[in-house]
């Protein structure tokens, strides 16, 4: 049986946007995000990021492209459990080959920005869900990516943590011009998004800017 995962999407995201992709379950939100992030292979069409057609890249080139250009925030935080908050943030910079001094400075700065300066040496299992997701955002920002892909980032958070996280991301978008692309069905995220793209069965049915 042939299953079409996403279909005729034609989408362009500009630098500095704060965009939410919404739609019912099975509409193709996560698959679209995976394709944009180079995690899923594209069988037809292409994904171009800052002039690079990532569908032509090899696996290793894609890994390197993701490392240099894309920050990921996952629904279940997915931090490295054996590393502290600071080490988690530093890790991605380590993969980029950034010096120890710069890693230390930037990780501390990012964790301060997300309000976790007092949790530098704490491991993920000692942090709340909201705090873990903040570390995940700090990690995603650590590599200075072109944009951040966040797949249902608030799905496991309570209202207060969600509000805090969204405030923090909106502030980064405002001040640092960091591009965010969410897939979500969380109304709280949709309410804060500046652009809302609704897809259904792989087709964009609306694209609204607020």
């Amino acid at each position: 049986m042939k299953v079409l995962a996403v279909n005729n999407v034609d989408l362009s995201i500009n630098e500095g946007e704060f965009t939410a992709i919404v739609g019912p379950s099975g509409s193709g939100k996560t698959t679209l995000l995976n394709m944009i992030g180079g995690l899923d292979n594209i069988t037809h069409g292409r994904v171009e990021i800052s002039g690079t057609d990532i569908s032509t890249l090899t696996d290793n080139q894609l890994i390197d492209f993701r490392l240099q250009n894309i920050g990921f925030v996952f629904q279940a935080y997915n931090l490295i459990p054996v590393l502290t908050a600071k080490e988690n943030v530093e890790f991605i910079m380590l993969l980029q080959g950034i010096s120890e001094k710069e890693r230390k400075l930037r990780s501390e700065e990012l964790l301060r920005d997300v309000g976790l300066v007092d949790k530098l040496n704490v491991r993920p299992n000692q942090l709340s869900g909201g705090q873990q997701q903040r570390v995940a955002v700090a990690r995603a920002l650590a590599s200075k990516p072109s944009f951040i892909l966040a797949d249902e980032p608030t799905a496991n958070l309570d209202s207060s943590s969600t509000a805090n996280l969204l405030d923090m991301m909106a502030e980064m978008n405002e001040k640092e011009k960091v591009t965010f692309l969410f897939s979500t069905h969380d109304q709280r995220v949709i309410d804060r998004a500046k652009r809302i793209i609704t897809i259904e069965d792989g087709k964009i049915i609306s694209d609204e800017r607020t």
Binding site: L39, I63, R66, F74, L95
Partner: peptide
């Protein structure tokens, strides 16, 4: 976790 490491850019 290993999949995540690959996703964020840890090479093979």
């Amino acid at each position: 976790e290993l999949g995540m490491l690959m996703a964020i850019g840890m090479n093979r």
